[in-house]
Computed example of a mutant assay.
Amino acid sequence: MGLIHIDLFTTLDGVAQAPGGPEEDAAGGFEFGGWQAPLIDEVVGGQIQSGMAGMDALLLGRRTYDIFAAYWPHQNGEIARLFNSIPKYVASRQAPALEWADSTLLGPDVAAGVSELRDRHQNIHVIGSLNFVQTLFAERLFDRLTLWVYPILLGKGKKVFADGVVPTNLTIIEPVVVSPKGAVLHRYALAEGTPGVGDMSEVEPEG
C-alpha cells in the first residue's frame, strides 16, 4: 500500500501562497511571491532532495499542476528529471488539457482515486496545491506531512490551515532539522484517534 505525502512550505503564520516566485500566484493581490527564495540554503536544499527519495508519482491540484507544467519540462537537473519522468495526477473539477507528459486527471471521487493511486505507487507526493490539500486533511487522505516553516510573518495570503481541519493526531517521525537561515523542517505521520484532553492542574511537572 503506497503512501500519500503532503509537502508544504509555510511562513510562521501559516502563509503558503506562492513561495517559489513573483508570478506563481498573485491571487488576492498577494505581493510576496517568492518569499522562500531568500531563505534557501544548503540544508534546505539537501533536505528537499532527500525528501524526494523514492517518489514515484505526483498528485497536484489544478493550479499547482499548471505552474509545474509550464516550468519543469524546460528545466534540467535532478528534480526536473524526476518530475518529468514520473506519472502526474491532477485533481480538478473540470476537464483541463493535460499537456505535461504522463499526466492523468484524478477521478471525481477523490477517496476512490487516492485509493487507486496507493495500489499503483509507493510514494505519491502532493506539493503545494493548497485547495486540494484541504480536502486531503478533511478526509484524512494522507500518510505523511512535511512542513518547512520559515521565520517570517506575512499576515495575508493563502494559509495551510485556513478553514480549520478535522481534529487529527500526528506523530513526528524524525528529528526536527533547523537550517542556518532559520527554516525548520517537521516530518509527521498520520496517527490513529483524535487529540486527547486533560487538566494541567493535575499534571506534575517533571524534574
Results as ranks from 00 to 15, higher is better:
Met1Gly: 13
Ile4Tyr: 01
Ile6Met: 10
Phe9Val: 12
Thr10Pro: 02
Leu12Arg: 00
Asp13Lys: 10
Ala16Phe: 03
Ala18Gly: 03
Pro19Ala: 02
Pro22Val: 04
Ala26Cys: 04
Gly28Lys: 01
Gly29Pro: 07
Phe30Tyr: 11
Glu31Val: 10
Gly34Pro: 00
Gly34Asn: 05
Gln36Asp: 02
Ile40Met: 14
Glu42Lys: 06
Val43Trp: 14
Val44Ser: 05
Ser50Ala: 11
Ala53Phe: 03
Ala53Thr: 15
Leu58Gln: 12
Leu60Pro: 05
Leu60Ala: 09
Asp66Gln: 14
Ala70Met: 06
Tyr71Ile: 06
His74Gly: 01
Gln75Asn: 11
Glu78Gly: 11
Ile79Cys: 03
Ser85Met: 05
Pro87Trp: 06
Pro87Gly: 12
Tyr89Leu: 10
Tyr89Phe: 15
Tyr89Ser: 01
Val90Glu: 08
Ser92His: 10
Gln94Ser: 15
Ala95Lys: 15
Pro96Arg: 12
Ala97Thr: 11
Glu99His: 13
Ser103Glu: 04
Ser103His: 10
Asp109Glu: 10
Asp109Trp: 06
Ala111His: 07
Ala111Phe: 06
Ala112Lys: 13
Leu117Ser: 10
Arg118Phe: 11
Asp119Thr: 13
His121Gln: 05
His121Tyr: 10
Ile127Phe: 08
Ile127Pro: 00
Asn131Phe: 10
Asn131Ala: 09
Phe132Glu: 06
Ala138Glu: 15
Phe142Pro: 08
Asp143Ser: 08
Asp143Pro: 08
Arg144Glu: 14
Leu147Glu: 07
Ile152Val: 15
Gly155Thr: 13
Lys158His: 04
Asp163Leu: 07
Val166Asn: 07
Asn169Lys: 13
Ile173Lys: 04
Pro175Gly: 01
Ser179Cys: 03
Pro180Ser: 09
Lys181Met: 02
Ala183Gly: 09
Val184Ile: 15
Arg187Pro: 00
Tyr188Phe: 13
Tyr188Thr: 00
Ala189Ile: 01
Ala191Tyr: 05
Gly193Lys: 12
Val197Gln: 08
Gly198Ile: 07
Met200Ser: 12
Ser201His: 14
Glu202Val: 00
Val203Cys: 03
Glu204Val: 11
Pro205Val: 05
